[in-house]
Amino acid sequence: MRSHVTCTINGDEVEFLVDDRQTLLDALRDELQLTGTKEGCATGDCGACSVLIDGRLNCSCLVFAREVEGADVLTVEGLADADHLHPIQHAFLEGAALQCGICTPGLLVAAKALLDRNLKPTEEEVRYAIAGNLCRCTGYDKVVRSILDAAAEMRDSAVVS
């Protein structure tokens, strides 16, 4: 069985046909060529495929594509505005928070999910917020610091604006 799905991805209305058993991850990567979202395990254990669905953090490998009918999906490709990066992306670059970079899209999305609801997280809150995202390169040290830096930066600019 195939389904016709209409949803919003990274701000654009998108229509596509999917097999009923196809995951959102496979639909993003194989049907829509949005390969920024990565597959590390396909069992919901590594977080490399993290996306926001209506603002909530999900492993896209655990969601059927047809389930996002009418939903608002954000992937790593939608984090930056046309001409400037999201503060979290900036902080990851400044803080050398990536080595190989395969987990980075998922970590950025998970960090956004945290900072969207809590702009003043503690180190421990950051660690638990990204505990579903495996990174094998960094030991998380610079990732956690960068998310804390991004939070501070976003707090500062929120005060200004």
Binding site: R29, D30, Q33, L34, T35, G36, T37, K38, E39, T75, V76, E77, L79, A80, L85, Q89, F92, L93, E94, A96, L98, G101, I102, T104, P105, L108
Partner: peptide, 23 residues
């Protein structure tokens, strides 16, 4: 110095192509 890595932008925007990303 701690400069920004030359491939950083591609890797924080999802543009970098890894092994499974070629179609």
């Amino acid at each position: 110095t701690r400069s920004i890595r030359p491939d950083g932008l591609e890797k924080v925007t999802g543009r970098a192509r890894f092994g499974a990303d070629y179609h």
